[in-house]
């Protein structure tokens, strides 16, 4: 009887331990959803979430040109403030994980910025990401550019973030 109990408990604990060791490179809060930040504008009726799927398609390989060319034909009034575009930034591999952002721009205004990917190779990095991610997003909205400060203590994440953001803004033609 004790043997059966031992076998069952041992197996369950063993599986649990094995699996939990493998949860390291967690996408930050995959269950909670990645952080994002939007401008509190009343006018924007568009849903950024819907565009995110399309945006991620052009993520890794798309150079700036095709992306900017593919949008104008559809929206002839590209300069008009109502035309929103969702652009994915470059996927950046940092020392501690992967960072990739996505912006929703309207004209030259950054309406929304969010993470497509924010992975961490260890629990400590994940903590740092959790803390630094929202700060970086807020700063981007305030600055309306990639001209923001790195978050202290999160240098690698900040640099990866900036690189990904810059690539997206380049595509959007925002300086």
């Amino acid at each position: 009887m004790t043997r059966i109990l031992l076998a069952v408990v041992g197996t369950v604990l063993g599986l649990f331990a094995l699996l939990s060791f493998k949860t390291h490179p967690l996408t930050t809060g995959s269950a909670r959803g990645l952080p994002s930040a939007s401008l509190p504008s009343a006018s924007s009726g568009a849903t950024p979430g819907a565009g995110s799927g399309a945006g991620s398609d052009s993520s890794s390989s798309a150079p700036p040109n095709p992306a900017s060319k593919s949008t104008p034909p559809k929206a002839a009034s590209s300069s008009s403030s109502t035309a929103q575009r969702t652009i994915a930034g470059q996927e950046v591999q940092t020392r501690y994980g992967i960072v990739q952002i996505q912006v929703v721009v309207s004209g030259s205004t950054i309406k929304n910025v969010s993470f497509l990917q924010l992975t961490a190779d260890d629990p400590r990095s994940q903590e740092i990401n959790d803390q630094a991610g929202p700060i970086l997003l807020q700063e981007t909205l305030s600055a309306q550019s990639s001209n923001i400060d790195t978050v202290s203590g999160a240098t690698y994440t900040s640099e990866g973030y900036l690189q990904s953001l810059q690539s997206a803004l380049d595509q959007a033609g925002i300086k």
Binding site: L18, L19, K22, T23, P25, L26, T27, S30, A31
Partner: peptide, 11 residues
Amino acid sequence: LWWHDTPFVTG
């Protein structure tokens, strides 16, 4: 073998 083939477990 499983460990080697599994990048990570999530969800």
